[in-house]
Simulated assay, not measured.
Amino acid sequence: MRIAGQDVPVVNGGLYDRFRSNPPLSVIAAETPEVDLSWFRQLKKERVDIGFESYSPNFYYKNSRVTAIFTADLDKLRELMPAKVLEQVQPLQVWPGRGLVALTAYSYRYCDNDSYEEIGLSVVTNKPGSASFGPFTLLRQSMSDDFWGYVLKLPVNTELARVRGVVGYNLPKWLTDIHFRETDSAVVVEIFDSATRQLDVTLETRKLGDLSSEESMVRNSFTNVDRQGQLTTGYSVSRQLSHASSSSADSVKLTLTDGSLSAYIKALKLGKLVKYEYVPLFQGALYAPKPL
């Protein structure tokens, strides 16, 4: 399939092959009768040009994720963000010299662009145009479930997800192997180096008990620069259907090697685990970016 002038392999007969990001919900209901589609019925898709024709928002019907939020070196985070972005947003300073990064592993098991895995490494920032009051801003974002960030790295394991993300959403995606598996007690995510094919990063997180099934709506927004050098912002909304969190350090084990992503993470000088989120079931809607 040609997308934005590139040949992209897609799953033959998959959702994207058949419907190009706009499948009727009746098809989703027939193929996955166990999935609650009530939320998606309230959302309206629009045709958009994002470097190729698509629809916004992109729907993610059945997914899981784990997120580990660590303190990191504030000067290094600023160094890694473009000057144009820093004019609008700043990394949140939680105490002198320390900011925050979120490392998230997503497993999109059924969505408009088929199924894939993705790893997000993001700087937690303030909202554009609002003052940053460090921990108080973080508290406000947490209480309102409205988070802002700048995405540093976003490897994925399908070419369809890579091309759509790079061209359509201005995101730093590349293609590599990602293995997402579960044991009785843990979620284990292995990220491989795209150049050497060797194991690069392993994220092992605990499956938490006391899961809440109370519906929780979370909005994650990002600021970045498009191919024309213009500031853009996009966002996703997650409907969390099963979730729990912990601040216990033994909830998360991060193993780094000599791989390229490991080296990048090491340079951030990660410190204390601030929060771990275990979300075995959520749905999502990803909106196309717009000029800031």
Rank of each mutant, 00 (worst) to 15 (best):
V151A: 07
G234Q: 00
T232A: 13
T205M: 14
R239Q: 05
S236W: 07
T232P: 00
Q240F: 01
S212K: 01
S242T: 12
S236V: 06
I178L: 10
W148F: 14
H243Y: 06
Q228M: 12
S194M: 12
R162G: 00
D193W: 11
V156Y: 05
K153R: 09
E214M: 09
S216T: 12
F180Q: 05
A186T: 15
V163C: 00
H243Q: 14
R140T: 10
N224P: 02
V225E: 05
R197Y: 06
E182S: 14
K173Y: 09
S144Y: 10
L154W: 11
V188P: 00
G209P: 03
Y235P: 00
G165I: 07
Q230I: 04
S132C: 12
F192P: 03
E214F: 12
A131W: 08
R219E: 04
R140K: 13
V167G: 04
L208A: 02
A161E: 07
F147L: 11
Y169T: 02
T196W: 04
T176A: 05
D177N: 11
F136M: 07
D184H: 11
S242H: 08
V156F: 01
H179V: 15
G234T: 02
H243T: 05
L199Y: 00
Q228C: 08
E214S: 05
V218G: 02
D145E: 14
L160V: 06
R140M: 13
D226C: 04
L175R: 06
S238I: 03
T196Y: 01
H179C: 09
V237D: 06
L171V: 07
P135V: 14
D177T: 14
D184A: 13
Q230R: 15
V187T: 10
S248M: 13
F192H: 13
T176P: 03
M143V: 11
R162A: 08
D145R: 14
L160M: 02
Y169G: 05
W148Y: 15
Q198D: 06
M143Q: 15
A161G: 04
T183W: 10
S236A: 10
N224M: 10
T223Q: 11
G168V: 01
D200N: 06
T183S: 15
F192R: 12
G209H: 04
F133M: 09
K253C: 05
F147H: 13
V188H: 07
S246K: 05
W174S: 00
V187N: 11
K173I: 02
M143W: 12
H179N: 14
W148H: 15
E204M: 03
L231E: 04
T137Y: 05
S130P: 02
D210E: 13
D145Y: 15
E182R: 15
D145I: 01
G149Q: 11
S251Q: 07
D210H: 07
L175K: 03
S238E: 14
T202A: 09
L231N: 09
P135R: 11
H179G: 08
Q240D: 14
V237A: 02
V166T: 12
V237G: 03
L231T: 01
F192G: 00
I178S: 10
